[in-house]
């Protein structure tokens, strides 16, 4: 028996063995592709599949994360630089509400609170 004949023979044999298997849900397919009643239309809308391009969305998300990370890093660096620029001896201590703070840090916190209040 040649390979092509064998292919055909096996195909026939499988068709015979699986003869009872038939596709019987074409009505459900039509119900989803051509919905007539309102519930069927709603179901079709609910089950509607849409595709999201993974690569562009993933890349955009990665870029956004990178920007946030860089901004955060920049802010931390600025704070550290400011602290380094102002020597300890030049910094002043202030007392507020029974606690002691560095004056520059305290003013920065007050400015932040004021800005929040205004917005």
């Amino acid at each position: 028996m040649r390979p092509e004949e064998e292919q055909q023979f096996i195909r026939d044999r499988l068709d015979e063995e699986l003869g009872d298997l038939r596709f019987l849900r074409s009505a459900e397919v039509l119900d989803r592709t051509h919905p007539r009643s309102l519930p069927a239309k709603l179901r079709a809308l609910w089950n509607y599949e849409f595709e999201l391009p993974l690569l562009p969305i993933g890349a955009s998300f990665a870029v956004l994360l990178a920007i946030l990370f860089v901004a955060q890093l920049q802010e931390n660096t600025d704070n550290r630089q400011r602290a380094a620029v102002m020597p300890r001896a030049e910094r002043q201590l202030v007392e507020a509400g029974g606690n002691t703070y560095w004056k520059d840090e305290y003013e920065k916190a007050v400015r932040g609170v004021e800005a929040q209040d205004q917005s």
Binding site: L14, L18, L21, V29, T33, H34
Partner: peptide
């Protein structure tokens, strides 16, 4: 043209073969 009869004919023609392939 999104014709319902054409889809029905498509399912009649290929439904059983695809069903058996999918089952296997």
């Amino acid at each position: 043209d999104k014709d319902e009869a054409a889809l029905r004919a498509l399912m009649e023609r290929y439904g059983n073969v695809l069903m058996r392939t999918a089952y296997l």
